[in-house]
Amino acid sequence: MSDPIIELQDTKLHYKIGNAVSAMMGLSTTVKAVDGVSFSLHKGESVGLLGESGCGKTSMGRILVRLEEITGGSARFEGDEIGDLKGTDLQRFRSRSQMIFQNPFDAVNPRYSIRKTLEEPLANAKISRSTWHQRVIDALDLVGLGDPEQFLERYPHQLSGGQLQRVVMARALILEPDFVVADEPVSMLDVSVRAGVLNVFRDVRDRLGLTAIYISHDLALVRYVCERTIVMYLGKIMEDGPTEDIVHDPLHPYSQALVAAVPTPHVDQSHDPLPIGGSAPDPRNPPSGCVFRDRCPMAQLRCADEVPQPRRIGTRLVACHFVSV
């Protein structure tokens, strides 16, 4: 196999928060948003990052496009440490890796026309002005906004949510990146337009051979776009493997809960209570041992003392002391 395009080794992103008072109160002032994550991505691979709110998905994505500097471990892009990139290398990296944000209405400047929205990255990357018009048209065409001319002079509020999310995608793609992080790109959209945006995402990715990370809390959406899924909880990887295997036979107790929680459009779906209650604990004071233990239905004494290391089980890596084949 080719060398990985993205390579993370024990990567950490600890945010410092609070003040002297919270320190005195014994509340740790560090949020371990990403806490020792390792995985690699090969060219053309699409991986879903799955987990509840606050488990570190967006933070992970922000590291990969260098919107955050890691506080430990290593994060490489084509072999180069992302945090060490400078000058033209950094500029090149910025155009080759892009992020698509959750809410299309927050992601654009409401006073910029669609044309200006799309020209901005071209200007930042110092692309020759004579090519702008064609590139803008091509990018809109790529995301299925056929007849692009009719959109150029419009403003964001004059587009539907689905159309605007496509513009946001076009902006991410206009510099022809190799790597894209899409952070819940359809969560703000109506069900009836979601399908269109997801199809465009799949289609463009395949046509351009993009490497992609798709962030969501909903395994049904991840399954539609990614062959591989990484399940995160409190900044750590719980399970990593082929999406279909996780859908049909989730191994980690947390993955099992996420699978059970996915809503389906059938009246005869299970109404059994979820295997876990509550929500993720305060990330300033994560539990000792396995971070999932205070919600885990299978937890035992050992889980409080020992951090489970990821182990290979068949096609997957699973971080749990008690999962076996």
Partner: peptide, 20 residues
Amino acid sequence: GLKNAFPDLHSAGTGILTPI
């Protein structure tokens, strides 16, 4: 049409979603 546009975790494959 709404039904075709919705991803279903319990379907056999991922098929293709069809927007309206």
